[in-house]
Amino acid sequence: MTPYNLVNLSALMGMEAIALTDHNSCMNCGAAMRAGAEAGITVIPGMELCTSEEVHVVCLFEELKAAEEFSDYVLSTMPPIKNRPEIFGTQLIMDETDKVLGSQDILLTAASGISIGSVEKLVDGYGGVCYPAHIDRSSYSVISNLGMITEEMGFEVAEVSPMGNVDDLIEKHPILGRMKILTSSDAHRLDALPPANLSLHTDNNIKSIIRHLKNR
């Protein structure tokens, strides 16, 4: 999955907007956004943050610069564990034509030092919105790791994977009934990209999408 391929295949599959959310990094967002401008598709800069509780949280930003600053901050909180490419694969940084510019040596699959209780305010400060990812899954989700979602976490949105049963989840966790529920592909490979399947009733630009998700 590389910036040029991701963006252009998404456009071919009929998507009007996508978000690139690498694990604990926004370093490929600029490339994807530039490829998106060429292909005529909105690319939202984002990250799938791994909190200190190993809960995945999707973070989306209005501005690339803020996303990259957030990315630097996240990196500064990561444990200094080096990636082992033979186990986890290489962590490439590319340009908009998929040319390799470099790689990240710090292991991005490790947890950041940012806690679930602080992430919403932190991301808001960078002009972004964030929400717990794939809350129905048995690993790396707020419900599997912490057992619940609380008001204090401050989330307005939650993401459910395509296999999740939203009605069941709301019954077990009534707070979800007051939140916006998104279903995302969470595609990690090109062949896992689904056809366009989520409609947000808002203008197709990054600012409008983020504000729509923030209910502002």
């Binding site: 791994c50 200190s52 509780e53 190993e54 444990p79 564990i81 292991l107 490790a110 947890a111």
Partner: peptide
């Protein structure tokens, strides 16, 4: 159970 702790 937190993999990052185990890792380090």
């Amino acid at each position: 159970d937190l993999l990052s702790w185990v890792m380090s």
